[in-house]
């Protein structure tokens, strides 16, 4: 990928920007249930942050810095999403029935916890994994 020596500003700022983007994407992921966001959007935004870093630092550096196996991440995501459904079957409910309740947690106060969030985590992982798989496999193609 592009890896020119004279992109100092870009290299410095991208670290900062990437952290902000990833943080925001995690926020979007968690806020999804009650505000705009969710696993799909959060996942895409995380993927964008990683991709921008790939653009700046090049494939070699990034593969060493973030040694994720994205196809694995994809399958883990799918397993998580499918797995939450099976839990409800185990308790005698239909497949993929979601539950929620409100809990008092120190610092955060009253918090709603849902099984849908775990399902959404699966969505998140799969979206990050597949977006990265797609683009990296196209990019790493040398021929």
């Amino acid at each position: 990928m592009i890896n020119q020596p004279n992109d100092m500003m870009f290299r410095v700022f991208i670290r900062l920007i990437a952290i902000i983007v990833v943080t925001f994407s995690i926020y979007l992921f968690f806020s999804g249930h009650n505000a705009p966001g969710g696993g799909f959007i959060g996942g895409l935004m995380t993927a964008i942050a990683i991709l921008v870093m790939y653009l700046v630092f090049g494939t070699k550096t990034m593969n060493a810095a973030l040694p994720f196996n994205y196809p694995y991440m994809m399958s883990i995501g799918l397993l998580v999403a499918a797995g939450t459904g099976i839990i409800s079957v185990a308790f005698g409910y239909p497949y993929l029935k979601q539950f929620f309740d409100y809990f008092q947690i120190p610092i955060f106060g009253e918090v709603e916890l849902t099984t849908a969030l775990i399902f959404d985590l699966g969505v998140y992982l799969l979206v990050v994994g597949s977006a990265m798989t797609f683009i990296l496999s196209i990019v790493e193609d040398d021929s």
């Binding site: 999804g32 009650n34 505000a35 966001g37 969710g38 929620f100 709603e112 849902t114 849908a116």
Partner: peptide
């Protein structure tokens, strides 16, 4: 479903 974001 306990969620205010209908789409999600």
């Amino acid at each position: 479903a306990g969620g205010y974001n209908m789409v999600n």
